[in-house]
């Protein structure tokens, strides 16, 4: 067995008994919504805040809020907390440590 086949890259065992609820994932839509709203809702220069035209401010704000939202998703995601592999619907083989090499 070569070094690359041991240890690293092994799929972590899926210890969750059933599929956990991952409602937090819906929050991942927030960045998309924020940016896509911009040309409709924020397409103007006024009000100028912190010296920045409004559209630009919105975009910068979206770029700052997005990582915070994704961080929140991770905190609320049971699969993240378990460090578990991602469920792959098309690959129904049970992952209980079967492929650990």
């Amino acid at each position: 067995m070569t070094r690359s086949q041991r240890g690293t890259g092994a799929v972590p065992p899926d210890t969750s008994p059933t599929r956990p609820r991952r409602h937090a994932l819906w929050l991942l839509l927030v960045p998309a919504v924020l940016y896509c709203l911009a040309p409709f809702v924020a397409n103007r220069i006024e009000p100028v805040i912190l010296g920045m035209p409004f559209l630009l401010l919105w975009m910068v704000a979206a770029t700052v809020i997005s990582p915070l939202v994704i961080w929140l998703v991770a905190r609320l995601d049971p699969i993240y907390r378990a460090g578990a592999p991602e469920p792959v619907p098309a690959d129904d083989a049970p992952a209980h440590g079967r492929r650990v090499r």
Binding site: L25, L28, Y35, A38, A62, S66, P67, E86
Partner: peptide, 12 residues
């Protein structure tokens, strides 16, 4: 915009 949204998509 697309690089940031792409990272949100990439979470999954």
């Amino acid at each position: 915009a697309y690089l940031t949204v792409g990272l949100a998509v990439a979470y999954i």
